[in-house]
């Protein structure tokens, strides 16, 4: 195995009551890669993220992190501690806590009961949180209750929380859903910036977003790998066009003229 591979999924199969949501899926992620995972509804994209972050246990197959750890046997919090962060489709922040507190507990730190019981917010941590607040543009709202933020701001807060976790791999499920065009562009730029240091897997439906920011794209269909390659290769593939892009082509044309 090459050293630069951070995550490798081999022959992963997931069954829900006999229904195979994923069938023998393979995925290899290099360090510092920004990968987009696309496919029609029900293709198993989100389930694939669930497998990687430990929410769903595959019935067979292996997921290897950093070339040595098989994470299919680990619990969610252990996987998170290894360095895999997950952002869910619906923004899931802690609504009754302030923005600052949300970031404070998400920050990379010792997560035992003992450590948190006596943790003090030091200057170093304070500046890390402050830097992150600036990056996600919520510095002026640091003492707001997170539940009072707008939808886009919640998404950003969650991305900020994930970045403070300092994971090796970020799993993002439709990060730009519900964002304005401007916010979407900003998110795309941010992802490129993050990808300098970390690996990212993004599940996305917004094809324009994918086209603008993707370097490598994996297409899934009915729980299987359909095609993997650059955006041009993927778009040129007949099977992909048939199952997925074909349906979207009209919509894309009308959007690109705008």
């Amino acid at each position: 195995m090459k050293e630069s591979v951070i995550l490798q999924c081999d022959d992963v199969t997931v069954e829900f009551d006999g229904f195979k949501a994923i069938q023998g899926m393979n995925l290899k992620l290099e360090k510092g890669e920004l990968r987009f995972l696309i496919g029609p509804n029900g293709a198993g994209k989100t389930t694939m993220l669930d497998v990687i972050c430990g929410k769903v246990r595959p019935s067979s197959g292996k997921v290897t992190f950093d070339g040595k750890v098989d994470i299919t046997r680990k619990k969610e919090h252990q996987i998170a501690e290894l360095g895999i962060g997950r952002k869910f489709q619906a923004p899931s922040i802690f609504p009754s806590m302030t923005v600052h507190e949300n970031l404070e507990i998400a920050m990379r730190q010792k997560r035992t009961v003992f450590a948190t019981m006596f943790a003090k917010l030091g200057d170093d941590e304070r500046s890390r949180i402050d830097y992150q607040l600036g990056m996600i543009g919520l510095r002026s709202k640091a003492s707001w209750r997170a539940g009072g933020l707008s939808h886009g701001e919640k998404q950003w807060l969650e991305i900020g929380m994930m970045l403070l976790q300092e994971p090796e791999i970020l799993l993002l499920d439709e990060p730009v859903a519900g964002m304005t065009d401007k916010e979407t562009d900003k998110t795309g730029e941010l992802l490129h910036e993050i990808a300098q240091l970390r690996s990212i897997v993004v599940v996305e439906h917004d094809m324009e977003f994918v086209r603008n920011f993707a370097s490598r794209v994996t297409v899934m269909h009915e729980g299987k790998l359909l095609k993997e390659g650059s955006m041009d290769e993927v778009q040129g593939d007949d099977r992909v066009a048939e199952v997925y892009l074909g349906k979207r082509r009209d919509a894309d044309v009308s959007r690109s003229t705008a």
Binding site: A80, I105, R111
Partner: peptide
């Protein structure tokens, strides 16, 4: 704060890395 986070969303706490 982690306790309050558990109250708000136990699953999310798990994916941050707390048990």
């Amino acid at each position: 704060k982690v306790l309050r986070a558990i109250r708000d969303g136990e699953n999310r706490v798990r994916f941050i890395g707390y048990n």
